[in-house]
């Protein structure tokens, strides 16, 4: 996988960008030519340059979400030539470099599209649905200060490693954007699996998966049809095996909570 250092020949591309002034306003594609593109430039840096050009011309720049620009915060969210985060594998939009394109390319840039991710402006979408899902159960209830010594609960390395694979999710929403059904299953699967694989996450395991799936459904995401478009675009290469695990966890939780005996005092709580 040794890449040749590309020659620094500058080139030109055309950006075909989705412009939408506000959530309710209609949107359309607008073309912007970009010359003197350096292959070592990141795609978002090209947008910066284009935006400065628009500003100077008195036009409004393209709104796009971005922050850390190193592929970890999950803010950036462009669908480029139909693929969330653009060409490449295991990267976020901010990690896409112009060396992935060629002179004369027309690059179509769209927002992540899903009913659950309404467009706020241009390429910026509202992904608060993910936060809602987390608030429903994406946690281990531990009050600050109540924790036992960290080494009192050993975690087999294999489980910790697998949990880490799931926990690597950056919450960008590319899985939703790529899914033909705009399903959030890979995101929820990653969250449920991360906590479900840790011994600390066991007490709330059933309650968590049921609550998170319920919230996911209410947010208007589609259903998983096992096509694995999600994992194909995940910037952290999270595998759809976690979706199988989520399905299993959900089924178990459904039957367990239905048939497990419940304490008569369960509703009362400690007075």
């Amino acid at each position: 996988m040794v890449a040749e250092k590309p020659s620094k020949k500058l080139f030109s591309v055309t950006l075909r960008v989705w412009r939408q002034p506000g959530p309710a306003a209609p949107g359309k594609f607008v073309e912007y030519p970009a010359a003197n593109v350096n292959p070592d430039m990141s795609f978002l840096e090209l947008l910066d340059v284009v935006n400065d050009g628009l500003t100077v011309k008195g036009e409004e720049p393209i709104a796009f979400a971005h922050d850390c620009r190193e592929g970890i915060c999950g803010t950036c969210s462009c669908t480029i030539n139909g693929k969330p985060h653009g060409p490449g594998h295991g990267i976020a939009t901010c990690q896409l470099y112009m060396r992935s394109f060629q002179d004369g390319d027309v690059i179509v840039v769209e927002p992540f599209r899903a009913k659950a991710f309404p467009i706020q402006r241009d390429l910026v979408t509202d992904r608060a649905a993910f936060d809602k899902i987390q608030q429903a159960g994406g946690f281990i209830s531990v009050r600050t200060g109540a924790a036992p010594d960290a080494n009192s609960i050993p975690v087999p390395k294999e489980d910790a490693d697998l949990a880490m694979d799931a926990a690597a999710c950056i919450g960008c929403g590319a899985c939703v954007a790529a899914c033909k059904n705009a399903s959030a299953m890979l995101f929820v699967a990653a969250k449920v699996s991360h906590l479900g694989l840790m011994p600390q996450g066991q007490p709330e395991r059933d309650r968590r998966v049921l609550a998170m799936v319920q919230t996911m459904d209410a947010a208007g995401f589609g259903n998983c049809t096992n096509q694995y478009e999600c994992s194909a675009v995940c910037p952290k290469n999270i595998t759809h095996d976690f979706i199988a695990r989520l399905n299993r966890d959900y089924a178990k939780a459904l039957f367990r909570t239905r048939f497990k005996p419940v304490s008569g005092a369960a509703a009362g709580g400690a007075g």
Binding site: A147, A150, P154, A163, M164, A167, Q200
Partner: peptide, 20 residues
């Protein structure tokens, strides 16, 4: 205390084979 707190929250810290 921070390490204890984070481990209890399920932070997947790197582990040895013994689980510690």
């Amino acid at each position: 205390n921070i390490i204890d707190q984070c481990a209890a929250q399920g932070v997947p810290f790197a582990r040895e084979y013994g689980g510690l």
